[in-house]
């Protein structure tokens, strides 16, 4: 959980003002309450949330961020949980599928050529897939060697 600022999160756990502006908290009938998740993170008992659908119900609308006097909000805690869940292979199927497509093609879909022709649109600009592949490879190699050097320390 190194990406979370525990100090800010402690203040956050005592405030919770954003509960009253968060669209998911206010509108999801089944109940959505990041305050409970944050409490468990601070107590070191967040494991159970990783497979819970709650952590994917943050809409990333940034309402909480805007009203937070720490400029932190629920969203950072929920995003950290989603990252952890993804690492453990617990992301929803659609997320996994979207990720695979992004890694493979650099996009989440290709321009619809026949529809473009019908609409009289010019040919779509070239994608950056080739260059993306190159930087992805370098990025992954560096990440790998970073992990290895951390482990050997």
């Amino acid at each position: 959980m190194e990406s979370l600022n525990i100090k800010l999160l402690e203040v956050c756990s005592k405030c919770g003002a954003c509960y009253h502006i968060c669209p998911s908290c206010l509108n999801l009938n089944e109940g959505y309450d990041p305050r409970a998740v944050i409490k468990d993170i601070l107590a070191g008992q967040y494991e159970k949330w990783l497979s819970h659908k709650s952590i994917w119900q943050c809409l990333e609308c940034h309402h909480c961020l805007e009203i937070c006097f720490q400029h932190y909000g629920f969203e950072n805690a929920m995003a950290a949980m989603r990252t952890l869940a993804s690492k453990k292979g617990l992301a929803p199927t659609q997320v996994k599928r979207g990720w695979d497509m992004f890694i493979k093609t650099s996009r989440l879909g290709e321009p619809a050529a026949p529809a473009r022709k019908k609409l009289g649109l010019p040919e779509a600009a070239k994608s950056g897939a080739e260059d993306f592949k190159k930087i992805l490879k370098i990025y992954q190699e560096r990440k790998e060697s970073g992990v290895r050097s951390q482990k050997s320390e």
Binding site: V95, S106, K126, G128, A129, D131, Y139
Partner: peptide
């Protein structure tokens, strides 16, 4: 020419922040 996905925050950033920033 040459743009890729922006990339989508709720998808890419959730899984790999570094790659989100790089892309």
């Amino acid at each position: 020419d040459g743009f890729t996905c922006c990339p989508e925050k709720s998808l890419v950033n959730n899984i790999d922040h570094g790659l989100w920033v790089l892309t």
